[in-house]
Amino acid sequence: MAINAYSLAKDGTKKLSTDFKVREFRCKDGSDPIFIDSELVEVLQKIRTHFGKAVNINSAFRTASHNAKQKNASHYSQHLYGKAADIWIAGVSVDTLAAYVETLLPNRGGIGRYYNDNFVHVDVRAAKSRWKG
Score class of each variant (00 low, 15 high):
Tyr100Thr: 06
Ala98Arg: 12
Tyr100Leu: 07
Val124Asp: 01
Ile3Arg: 11
Tyr115Gln: 08
Cys27Ala: 10
Tyr6Leu: 02
Thr13Pro: 02
Ala2Asn: 15
Asp11Lys: 04
Thr103Gly: 01
Leu80Gly: 06
His79Lys: 01
Leu40Ile: 00
Thr63Gln: 03
Ala64Leu: 09
Thr63Ala: 02
Lys83Thr: 10
Ala9Leu: 14
Val120Cys: 00
Ile57Asp: 12
Asp32Ala: 06
Asp86Ile: 02
Lys10Leu: 11
Glu102Lys: 15
Thr103Leu: 01
Gln45Ile: 06
Leu40Glu: 05
Ser17Gly: 13
Ile3Lys: 10
Arg26Val: 03
Tyr100Cys: 05
Gly12Phe: 06
Asp19Phe: 08
Arg125Cys: 00
Ser59Cys: 07
Lys69Asn: 11
Asn116Ser: 10
Leu105Met: 05
Ile34Cys: 04
Ala68Phe: 11
Arg62His: 07
Arg26Asn: 07
Thr96Pro: 03
Leu40Gly: 02
Ala54Lys: 15
Val55Glu: 12
Tyr114Gln: 09
Thr103Lys: 06
His79Trp: 05
Asn56Leu: 12
Ala90Pro: 11
Ala5Pro: 04
Ile111His: 03
Ala127Asp: 12
Thr96Ala: 09
Val41Trp: 11
Val120Trp: 00
Arg48Asp: 15
Ala54Gln: 14
Val124Thr: 04
Gly12Ala: 08
Leu8Gly: 08
Phe51Ser: 09
Gly52Trp: 00
Gly109Asp: 01
Ser17Gln: 10
Val122His: 00
Gly52Gln: 00
Phe119Asp: 05
Ile36Arg: 13
Lys69Gly: 10
Leu104Ala: 04
Arg125His: 03
Asp29Met: 03
Asp32Arg: 00
Arg48Ala: 09
Ser7Lys: 13
Phe35Leu: 03
Leu97Glu: 11
Ile89Glu: 13
Ala99Phe: 13
Cys27Gly: 08
Val122Arg: 01
Val124Leu: 05
Lys21Pro: 10
Arg48Glu: 15
Asp19Cys: 04
Ser65Gln: 14
Tyr100Phe: 13
Ile57Cys: 13
Asn67Thr: 14
Arg23Glu: 11
Pro33His: 04
Gly82Pro: 15
Arg108Lys: 01
Val122Cys: 05
Arg23Leu: 00
Ala99Glu: 15
